[in-house]
Write a protein that binds this DNA or RNA. Structure first.
Length: 235
RNA sequence: UGGCACUAGAAACC
């Protein structure tokens, strides 16, 4: 079972979903990890609706979804924007007390955000019983940045430092993105500069973000300077 | 003492 699940997972991770399904179908014995590997693979691949179907089938077969299982199911809901399904997964999570796991909470926040319900995402963020991780903060900042309110995203970014979390390059990207959406040019430039000061590595996305920000503000010379200062190949 | 796990922008192009 271990070897077959490993094989299944390799297929799933490389996006070869047909072979992943084939291995799954041909397995004599399957345990929870076999199901999880396929559900997650389908969810992150091109077949999130099949992932949800498999998730439902699991119950029919009398298997109990665990924390890893619901992550796959939530990921599928996020991709599909399937809020109804997402809420029912969340209900299950609460019934089974799986929400004492930060990773599960993070996935719920992300699911709500991707389904466009930023307020609910924030409610979960605010009321979660477990300790917030860096990913928790990043997910919520990104949610505000993309689907909601740039100002709130920046507020949260500042708040995370007060809470003792150290922003990484994803946090900065999320905050920069918030500036792009909200047109907060100076704030964005400040953030971009503080990355260097704080020793957070920049990648091409960070550069792209400020360049876009400056470009839209008509500050083309500055944008051009930044492009020329890039230590990597611009895309 | 093994296998499955959460977050990554915009524009342009198609």
């Amino acid at each position: 079972v271990l070897l077959q699940t490993t094989l299944l997972d390799v297929f799933a991770k490389t996006g070869d979903l047909n072979n992943a399904c084939y291995v799954f179908d041909e397995m004599g014995m399957r345990d929870i990890a076999s199901w999880n590997a396929l559900i997650a693979g389908l969810a992150q691949g091109s077949r999130p609706s099949d992932a949800l179907e498999l998730f439902k089938n699991m119950k029919v077969e009398g298997l109990k979804a665990n924390d890893v299982t619901v992550l796959g199911a939530l990921s599928a809901c996020s991709q599909l924007g399937a809020i109804k399904e997402g809420e029912s997964v969340y209900n299950y999570i609460r019934d089974e007390r799986l929400d004492d796991n930060v990773i599960v909470c993070n996935a719920v926040i992300d699911m709500y955000a991707k389904c466009g319900l930023v307020e609910k995402a924030y409610w979960v963020f605010d009321n979660m019983s477990c300790r917030k991780s860096l990913v928790t903060w990043n997910t919520m900042i990104m949610a505000f940045a993309m689907y909601g309110d740039g100002v709130k995203a920046i507020e949260l970014f500042k708040q995370m430092a007060q809470a003792g979390a150290v922003p990484d390059n994803v946090s900065y990207l999320a905050a920069l993105c918030a500036c792009n959406h909200a047109g907060m040019v100076d704030e964005g430039v400040r953030l971009f500069e503080s990355m260097a000061v704080c020793g957070v590595s920049r990648n091409v996305k960070h550069y792209g973000s400020v360049v876009d920000l400056l470009g839209r503000a008509g500050r083309l010379e500055e944008a051009y300077k930044i492009i020329n200062s890039m230590p990597m190949v611009p895309d």
